[in-house]
Design a protein around this nucleic acid. Structure first.
Length: 413
RNA sequence: CGGGGUAUAGCGCAGAUGGUAGCGUGCGUCGUUCGGGACGACGAGGUCGUGAGUUCGAAUCUCACUACCCCGACCA
């Protein structure tokens, strides 16, 4: 992508009222634009990161479920059926009553905060028999939750991207099998994104979903809003919310801040029973379907990555989710820059080509701010020295690489 | 929803005791520069969050409202 045609440019200063580092850097670098508290536009750079994260998630979720897409807008009746119209206090309700064309209508809809209530009747319709189970579906979709206090940039939004997967089983034992498999697949996702070693599975409250524990995927992060207690002998992690008083003085626990990037719930029959979803077993008897739900916060993940991976100059994206692999800096509008851009493109390397007429310092500053893994600098000086100058965002030293070895170099980074 | 803070040019900010708004940056034109946010000259850009009130006169004082940020409560 040519930077001159991106339609968005980095700011020289960070927003004055932002405190969270992800909010400051993502806005300053031009990844997101705030529309309201907790509601953001994903700008070209930001959308690319969202897609990168989503595609990694998608790749692994395809191993355990099939993708579909449910609507963000849903009929109120689904939520009445499950009783959650009253119990979820962050529901956004959409009204059509003031639309002249529907003058007398008092129809009210729900902007979905999650989809258990929508997916259960859907799956019920197509999967009546023991032969159909287990079955699982997922989607990557925009959620709406009227958080009483949106904050910290992408960490806590009122509109956000989420992957949610739902599984349906004949019994608790089968759910348990799937549930454990889902944990493993989740960890693969986090490993590929680059936070595998820093992510633990913590026992947490099941909320009003279940009296059992739910399991949170918590990524170590100094600015994270959750506190995790890791039992050093058993290796089991707990969210502070389920810890008894006094545990923080117990030396057997390692205590650290973390940010929740995923949460999985054994739902039991709460949603299926509310809908009267029973399958017909082999012997002809009716039995309640057992359900689980599994979420990953896509847009929050983007925020967490910035919280974790940055320095005083800007973002340092993990290569797997960087908006571009290469930031091509062209200091003098050289013809070679265009050739290199095409060469990279033909080799399947995404690059952001800074073709703007600006000073070198500004281009370097923007490259550091945006945070692509590899900076490739082409200038009359670099050409004189035998090629292009490459520098990793995570390092300070640069070196000259001949143009014909550039692709090979990048592929080995 | 409680507590605190903020709201002035695209962005970042300054404007004591009331007198009709300024700096930096960015933007436009010209010239000089050209490898870590270059320099000079000229220029464009603001109903000072909204609405009332006090006053001859309000960015400034009073009240109400709204929005945003932070702490707390909440977070299926």
């Amino acid at each position: 992508m040519k930077m001159s045609k991106m339609g968005i440019r980095p700011e020289k200063t960070a927003p004055g009222d932002a405190e969270a580092i992800n909010q400051k850097l993502l806005i300053q670098a031009g990844f997101i634009h705030q529309e309201m508290a907790g509601v953001y536009t994903f700008l070209p750079l930001g959308l690319r990161v969202i897609y990168k994260i989503e595609n990694i998630v998608r790749k692994y979720m395809d191993e355990i479920g099939s993708e579909l897409l449910m609507p963000g807008l849903s009929p109120k009746e689904y939520w009445k059926t499950t009783g959650r119209l009253e119990t979820i206090d962050v529901l956004f309700k959409a009204s059509a009553a003031n639309d002249v064309s529907l003058a007398k209508s008092d129809a009210e809809y729900i902007l979905c905060p999650t989809h258990e209530d929508v997916v259960a009747p859907l799956i019920q319709k197509y999967n009546p028999s023991y032969k159909d189970l287990p079955v699982s579906v997922y989607q990557i979709q925009t959620k709406y939750r009227n958080e009483p206090r949106a904050k910290s940039g992408l960490l806590r939004c009122r509109e956000f991207r989420m992957k949610d997967l739902y599984s349906f089983h004949k019994d608790e034992a089968d759910l348990k099998l799937f549930y454990e498999e889902a944990k493993k697949v989740y960890m693969k996702v986090f490993e590929e994104i680059g936070i595998g070693k820093d992510t633990v599975i913590a026992l947490a409250s099941g909320g009003d979903f279940t009296r059992d524990y739910s399991h949170e995927f918590q990524t170590r992060c100094e600015t994270g809003e959750d506190t995790i207690y890791l039992d050093k002998t058993t290796g089991i992690a707990y969210n502070k919310e389920v810890m008894p008083e006094g545990a923080d003085t117990n030396p057997n626990f390692e205590v650290f801040n973390a940010c929740e990037v995923g949460n999985i719930f054994p739902l039991g029959t709460k949603f299926t029973q509310a809908n009267g979803y029973e399958y017909t077993d082999k012997d002809g008897s009716k039995k309640p379907v057992v359900m689980g739900s599994y979420g990953i916060g896509i847009s929050r993940m983007m925020g967490v990555l910035v919280e974790k991976f940055h320095d005083d100059k800007g973002i340092i994206w993990p290569a797997s989710v960087a908006p571009f692999q290469v930031h091509l800096v062209d200091l003098q509008q050289l013809e070679e820059a265009g050739k290199i851009y095409t060469q990279l493109k033909n080799a399947g390397v995404d690059s952001l080509w800074d073709d703007r007429e600006m000073s070198a310092g500004e281009k370097f500053a923007d490259a550091d701010l945006i945070g692509c893994p590899v900076r490739v600098l082409v200038s009359s000086r670099s050409l004189q020295n035998g090629g292009v100058e490459v520098k990793l965002r995570s390092e300070t030293e640069s070196k000259i690489i001949s143009i014909d070895k550039l692709i090979e170099y990048i592929n080995n980074v």
